[in-house]
């Protein structure tokens, strides 16, 4: 498997309608390393699904190109679909058939047959926790069960790369939890997983790498750790401190003298300090030397939402790490 399982360059998709022109994906260049959980994050309409559709040849790019597992996304899309497990957004099944019948069709399209196909179907249904429901018609399935069946479809060919488009949209919290567990297990098996989602809180924590998309463009991409470090360096650090007694105004001036401090707010016993660089150690030393007992001393951890909002305002750079 190549080091980069997905690589695109200036991938662009323009939808032409009557009297309208929509740039769904705008010169997107992404790189997905092998073995990572890659989150393609962004609001609805950001172009995530169109991007994934182009990667598997369902939609042809207007401009640019790319490779998936070393295969050209335009000329060799069939080879890509042979090797990549895909869970499309709004997947549907033949409702009057059982999961086994649905999976048999998918398996046969992927060249599986006989005992091998039977065994694979049993295996993937066990993996996604649907073994008990294998003889029920899909029409009776909940949304969460359907998504798990969709994942079973994607896993049937035992792929090294999985593309999951909005896999938890519309699923109840219990279903999301189950889904997250499944993705973690698959990741531990060494598979590369690309998850496209607008639900940053639900699936963001699973990702080792992310790309944030908005209005067809990639705002930032890279390893999550590096993006957060970059965010902190650019956006600054915030400390929430609670003292055991009410402090005087002098402390505010003393903190400012530490340098690189942007803002200090004192409300009774509570202090909020914002700085350009990490001042955690210096702040702690200074306050304890002054004789304050600290009831609380925490550095605010940025969330993916913070990162998304920061970059979507155009304050960050395009690539990190």
């Amino acid at each position: 498997m190549p080091d980069l399982v997905i690589e695109t360059y200036e991938l662009t998709k323009v939808f032409q309608g009557i009297g309208q022109r929509i740039v769904a994906v705008n010169e997107v260049s992404i790189k997905v390393p092998s073995g990572v959980v890659f989150g393609l994050l962004g609001p609805n309409g950001a172009g995530k699904s169109t991007l994934l559709s182009m990667l598997i040849g369902l939609t042809l790019p207007t401009k640019g190109g790319g490779k998936v597992l070393g295969y050209d996304i335009v000329k060799e899309s069939l080879e890509i679909r042979k090797r990549v497990g895909i869970l499309p957004e709004r997947i549907g099944f033949y409702e009057h058939l059982t999961p086994v019948r649905n999976l048999t069709l998918i398996g046969k399209l992927n060249g599986l047959s006989g005992k091998e196909l039977e065994d694979r179907i049993k295996h993937v249904l066990r993996m996604v926790g649907l073994s008990e429901h294998m003889h029920k018609n899909v029409g009776a399935f909940s949304r969460g069960m359907r998504q798990r069946l969709g994942l079973a479809c994607a896993l049937l060919k035992d792929p090294d790369l999985l593309l999951l488009d909005e896999p938890t949209a519309g699923i109840d919290p219990e279903g999301v939890k189950v889904f997250r567990g499944l993705v973690r297990d698959l990741s531990r098996e060494g598979r590369t997983i690309v998850i496209s989602t607008h639900l940053l809180r639900e699936l963001g924590p699973l990702c080792t790498h992310i790309a944030i998309m908005k209005e067809g463009r990639i705002l930032v991409q890279g390893a999550v750790k590096e993006i957060f470090e970059d965010f902190l360096l650019k956006r600054g650090f915030t400390y929430d401190i609670s003292l055991s007694e009410v402090a005087d105004q002098g402390i505010v001036e003393e903190i400012k003298e530490l340098g690189n401090v942007v803002d200090v707010q004192l409300k009774g016993r509570d202090l909020i300090v914002r700085s350009k660089v990490d001042l955690g150690d210096e702040l702690y030393d200074m306050l304890t030397k002054r004789g304050y007992r600290l009831r609380k001393f925490t550095m605010r951890k940025p969330t993916l939402e913070d990162v998304f909002l920061y970059y979507s305002r155009g304050e960050g750079t395009n690539e990190v790490g």
């Binding site: 679909r81 499309p88 957004e89 709004r90 997947i91 549907g92 409702e95 992927n110 060249g111």
Partner: peptide, 14 residues
């Protein structure tokens, strides 16, 4: 409408 076309066309079939 049922979404089955997506399911099929994401497989190796022209």
């Amino acid at each position: 409408e049922r979404g089955t076309l997506r399911m099929i066309l994401t497989q190796p079939i022209y």
